[in-house]
Structure formats: C-alpha cells, structure tokens
Simulated scan of single mutants.
Amino acid sequence: MVAPEAAWKVAHEAEIAAWNAVFETRPTTLPGFVAVVRHAQQWASDYYGIDECLDADDIMAKIAADAERVMWAALDKRGDDRPNLSKVPAAELAAMSFEPVNRSTTPCPVPSREDWVRDADTALPWLRLGWLYLSLNRDELADALLAEDDQQADDFGRNLNIAARNFDQLARFARAVLDRRMVGIAALAVREGAPDDIGGA
C-alpha cells in the first residue's frame, strides 16, 4: 500500500496546487477574469474545507482584487489612452490606488523656460514646414523629399523628433494631472458626504 499511497499523495498535492494556481494567477483580460469566476462557481464546493486549499474568503478577496484591476485596465482602453473616469462612481474613484510621485528622485517633466525657448526655436520652424508637407499630394511629397539635401533631412527628422517627444511628454503629464484631480475631487466629495456619483470632466 505504500506505493499507491505515495502516488495518491503526489496527485493530491498536484491537484491542490493546480486549484490554488487558478486564483493566484492574475487574469489580464475580462474573458480571463470571467473564466476564473466560472471556475470557482463550478468547483469551489468540491474543494471547500480541504487543507491547504484556498478557502472561500481568500478566493473572493482575490476575485475582488482582480475585478478592480481588470476594470481599470478596461477603462485604460479609451481612445486617448486615458482612463475613462467620468462615469466611475465617486466612492470607487476616491478609492482608486496610485503612487504619489517622489519629487526628490523624479525630475519634473515640464521643461524650464530656457529649455522650452531653446527647443521651440529649433523645432517650430520644422513643424511649420511639416505642416506644408502634409498639404502635398503623393507626387509633390516625393519631389519635396528629393529636393532636400542631407543636412536638411537630418535637421528635419531630429527636430521633429524633439518636438514629438516634448509634446507627447507634456500631453501625458497634463492628462495624468487631470485624472489625479478627478480622484482628489472624488475623495473630497466622499469625505464631505457628497452624492456617490459626482460625474467627471
């Protein structure tokens, strides 16, 4: 009986590990989250009370955390890559987790006046030329590119990249500030006993 008992023990431990792994593996999509919930619904009663298996409280806590994370991930799919916070109830928005920026270790993304003027002096003329390029048809664009000398082509690409980098960075910064303000407004509304849904910007 020793060998069968050892084999049963190995299989039993593997089954427990597999059961727990379902709830310890974080789903990254809504279908994945739904699959975890359905798995729990179908099989939880079979594992209830078994030593070393996650109990119902643990499973529900993990499912709740997964639901919150998947929800925020889904909201992040809005067209401008910002979370769609405008429809989130104030209580949920106020409880949204975030890490404050450490100003002692993170440089401010907003350029200084000197940096802004320097980059604008070099980038803006190329942006205006780029606007003219957008007005050309295919053959005209090809002819314009052919007429560029090597230095002009290098300057064009380099300075447009500088402008794109700076403006993208500032746009992300501004959106992040707007979203953080919404969280703060919701937290203030909840603290002051305002209605649960404050709307949004």
Rank of each mutant, 00 (worst) to 15 (best):
V2L: 15
A7W: 12
A7N: 12
K9C: 14
A11W: 02
A11G: 00
E15P: 07
A17N: 07
W19Y: 08
T25R: 11
T28R: 03
T29W: 03
L30V: 09
G32C: 04
V37I: 12
R38D: 14
Q41P: 02
W43G: 13
S45V: 14
Y47D: 10
G49R: 08
I50V: 15
E52I: 07
L54D: 11
D57C: 11
M60D: 15
K62Q: 08
E68A: 10
R69G: 11
V70F: 03
M71Q: 05
W72G: 05
D76L: 08
K77Q: 14
D81Y: 12
P83W: 09
L85F: 03
K87L: 07
V88H: 01
E92T: 10
E92C: 00
L93Y: 02
M96N: 01
P100E: 00
N102F: 09
R103Q: 11
T106K: 01
P107C: 07
R113H: 09
V117T: 08
A120L: 08
D121V: 05
P125L: 02
P125C: 01
L129T: 07
L129R: 02
G130Q: 01
W131I: 13
L132K: 04
L132S: 07
S135H: 02
R138A: 11
D139A: 09
A144V: 08
L145C: 13
D149E: 04
A153H: 08
A153V: 10
D155F: 03
G157F: 13
N159T: 14
I162F: 10
F167R: 07
L170D: 03
L170R: 09
A171V: 12
A171S: 15
R172M: 10
R172A: 15
F173H: 01
V177Y: 00
D179I: 10
D179M: 08
I185A: 09
L188A: 15
V190G: 00
I198G: 10
